[in-house]
């Protein structure tokens, strides 16, 4: 495992910590898209179907369990927690799941590495992860007064994908036959979706003003 991959995973992990921290400390999930959280949970469930059948390392297995556990914990906080669930911006979080899930499912049926149920579901998770942030980005644009932790959360998610791209470049040059078109193209699309956000995030940070996305 190279440093980019490890840094990417740690940043990804940190994004969960920041999100749980924000929700717990403020007892509010204002500005957080439940739809994005549900899509991420679906992504992890579909991707880690091999959790018990395909052992790679203790690190991998542990991280997978942590990602799954945290995702479900966040869903519980946003949907089940008495105090927190009333702070959810239901009226603003209107992105339709089907617009994302259906095209990704169709694409996975058409473009995959092998025609097996496991492989198609895994490919679906790769495609879905690339676009799962969209409801969150739309909600962010609608939310006035984005709090710092929400901004940092989205920034960390984007940074994680950027670091994975560096990891793929590194692996391409250091490991023979390491070519993964589906993962690479999806990952690049995913990172591009963040570019606009990055621009405003860095600008607000440099000018020391509160983050606000133009609508």
């Amino acid at each position: 495992m190279n440093i980019f991959r490890l840094a990417g995973d740690m940043v990804h992990l940190l994004s969960f910590v920041v999100l749980v921290l924000k929700i717990n400390a403020t007892k509010s999930c204002r500005g957080i898209s439940l739809k994005t959280q549900e899509l991420y949970t679906l992504v992890f469930v579909c991707r880690y179907l091999d959790l018990f059948s395909n052992f790679i390392s203790m690190y991998n297995t542990t991280m997978k369990i942590v990602f799954l556990g945290t995702s479900f914990a966040i869903l519980y906080l946003m949907r089940g927690h008495k105090v927190i669930k009333v702070t959810y911006d239901r009226e603003q979080d209107t992105f339709r799941y089907l617009f994302l899930v259906l095209p990704c499912a169709l694409l996975a049926l058409l473009i995959h590495n092998a025609w097996t149920p496991f492989e198609v579901v895994w490919t679906f998770s790769i495609y879905l992860e690339a676009v799962a942030i969209l409801p969150q980005l739309v909600l962010l644009q609608r939310t006035q007064n984005i709090d710092n932790l929400t901004g940092n959360y989205v920034f960390l998610l984007g940074l994680y994908r950027g670091l994975y791209i560096l990891n793929w470049i590194y692996r391409y040059f250091t490991e023979p036959h390491y070519i993964q078109w589906i993962v690479w193209i999806s990952g690049i699309v995913q990172t591009i979706l963040y570019l606009d956000f990055f621009y405003y995030y860095i600008k607000s940070w440099k000018n020391n003003v509160k983050l606000a996305l133009p609508s």
Binding site: R5, D9, H12, D50, N54, I56, S57, N60, M63, K64, F67, N113, A114, T116, F118, E119, W122, Y164, N167, Q180, V183
Partner: peptide, 10 residues
């Protein structure tokens, strides 16, 4: 089998 070896990322 493609599945095992190449799915070592999260």
């Amino acid at each position: 089998e493609i599945a095992a070896a190449e799915k070592d990322e999260l």
